[in-house]
């Protein structure tokens, strides 16, 4: 990233940052043996289970893997459907 881009705060990731992200994801998949396909399956099943009890936005559900140091996490983001104040 050039000096000027840095100076004016344009947030384009460097190839170093891209490499680190890709590496972390590849290692998480290697170590946990959780494939992108399995993540899709998990997502579908999570949507099915949660929907039985709570109104959610199925299109907004994201299931992903993250790594920080040696800790790996399965993260599910599940947006709730319009939660209005109860009127009854």
């Amino acid at each position: 990233m050039s000096f000027w881009k840095r100076l004016f705060g344009q947030q384009e990731p460097t190839s170093r940052e891209i490499a680190k992200k890709r590496l972390q994801l590849a290692l998480t998949v290697d170590r946990t043996r959780i494939s992108p396909h399995l993540l899709e399956t998990l997502k579908d099943e999570i949507i099915a289970v949660i929907s039985q009890h709570v109104d959610i936005e199925p299109d907004g559900v994201v299931v992903s893997l993250t790594q920080q140091r040696s800790e790996h996490r399965l993260v599910a983001e599940i947006p709730l459907a319009n939660a209005r104040r109860r009127r009854e």
């Binding site: 990233m1 190839s15 170093r16 590496l23």
Partner: peptide
């Protein structure tokens, strides 16, 4: 590394632990 075009020592060590 300084230009942001190569993994740095800290990146590699952090990932491999």
């Amino acid at each position: 590394v300084r230009r942001g075009d190569m993994l740095g020592t800290s990146d590699v060590i952090e990932v491999l632990a």
